[in-house]
Amino acid sequence: MSDYLDGNAAAGALSELFAVDLTAAIAQCNGCGQTTVFAESRLYVDAPGMIARCAGCDTVLLRVVTTPTNTYLDLRGLTYLRVPNS
């Protein structure tokens, strides 16, 4: 069974942390080097936190955990995120 959403669904959680919309940014995966729009990554939400994985190689691109007092963000699977200047 495919049990993931599109990276797009992380937009709300990420908007707590960033003023720009990261889901429309171009992301490069640390694992395989593929570059895609972050919205096209696979988002697993039926878990203790939100996990985005590369659609090409399943590397964890990003994790977000919201606790009652803090939000934890781990971006270690992303080589970069590219956002156009406004």
């Binding site: 049990d3 697993y44 039926d46 878990a47 203790p48 936190g49 996990i51 994985r53 399943d58 964890v60």
Partner: peptide, 8 residues
């Protein structure tokens, strides 16, 4: 028995 998954 809920299935939680953090990946494939």
């Amino acid at each position: 028995f809920p299935v939680l998954s953090a990946g494939p």
